[in-house]
Simulated assay, not measured.
Amino acid sequence: MAKSASNPDGQRQQRWALLGGTFDPVHIGHLRIAIQLRAMGFERVLLIPNRIPPHRPQPQADGEQRLAMLQAACATLDGIEPSSIELVRDDLSYSAVTVATLRDLYPQVAFTWVMGQDAWQGFEHWYMPQALLEQANLLVISRPGVRSVSHWQEQQLETRECGSAELLAHEAGRICLHHMPELDISASDLRRALKRGDNVTFLTPDAVLEYISQNQLYR
């Protein structure tokens, strides 16, 4: 993505959502979240594949392959696109570093980092969590049965249910819990199904399945 011109009045006029993960492979659950984020009012949604995820096992497909699958999946989706910003960095894929880099590249954009509620439970152990909050909002997508928060979260942060209007009205520091309809699918389930040779139609776009087949992934 090309670097944008500086905004002379210092105001961040656009609102983008950031969804990180291994995307190993991308599946329809990821894409449905991205589509819903666009419907909430975000002008753009970036899907950011990790190069070296700090909190989960290393992906099976390499970065180039996962980016190619994301490009195929997003080809017909308006305002939804993959970003290679973490793949081109040799270090661990820290969200705080990613957001800081994006803020330098796009000074007219305010960012909201999107995570599942399971990831939110361990947020205090992320790299520089407070720095991330100073640079972006957080949108926590609720998961059935996941409700508890840690003592650190209770003492330091206020997490509450709110609509997209609050996230779109503030540049950083807001933490919102949001309910989204969930699809019962995970990348690990999809990889196991592909290895077994199961029919995975509609679990990921046909273009992604074609890429997986051509490159003999997840066998």
Results as ranks from 00 to 15, higher is better:
Ala39Asp: 10
Val99Cys: 05
His178Ser: 11
Gly163Met: 03
Leu157Phe: 02
Ser213Arg: 15
Asp118Cys: 06
Glu81Cys: 12
Gln71Trp: 02
Ser93Lys: 08
Leu203Cys: 14
Gln58His: 07
Leu167Glu: 04
Glu43His: 14
Ala100Gly: 13
Ala169Trp: 05
Met1Asp: 10
Leu37Gly: 10
Arg219Gln: 14
Ala5Glu: 15
Leu133Val: 06
Ser213Cys: 11
Cys74Trp: 00
Trp113Met: 14
Leu37Arg: 13
Asp62Leu: 04
Arg38Gln: 13
Ser188Lys: 10
Gln155Asn: 09
Leu157His: 09
Gln14Cys: 09
Met40Asn: 00
Glu86Gln: 01
Glu81Asp: 10
Asp62Met: 07
Pro25Asn: 08
Glu81Lys: 10
Ser93Asp: 03
Ile33Thr: 10
Gln117Ile: 00
Ile80Gln: 06
Gly21Phe: 04
Gly29Ser: 09
Ala72Asp: 00
Trp152Glu: 09
Gln156Asp: 02
Val26Pro: 11
Arg191Asn: 10
Asn7Leu: 08
Gly20Trp: 07
Gly197Arg: 14
Leu139Asn: 07
Val99Pro: 05
Tyr127Asn: 05
Glu161Ile: 06
Leu132Pro: 06
Leu102Val: 07
Ile80His: 08
Ser164Trp: 09
Gln14Ser: 14
Ile80Val: 07
His170Arg: 14
Glu182Lys: 15
Pro205Glu: 01
Leu167Gly: 03
Val109Phe: 07
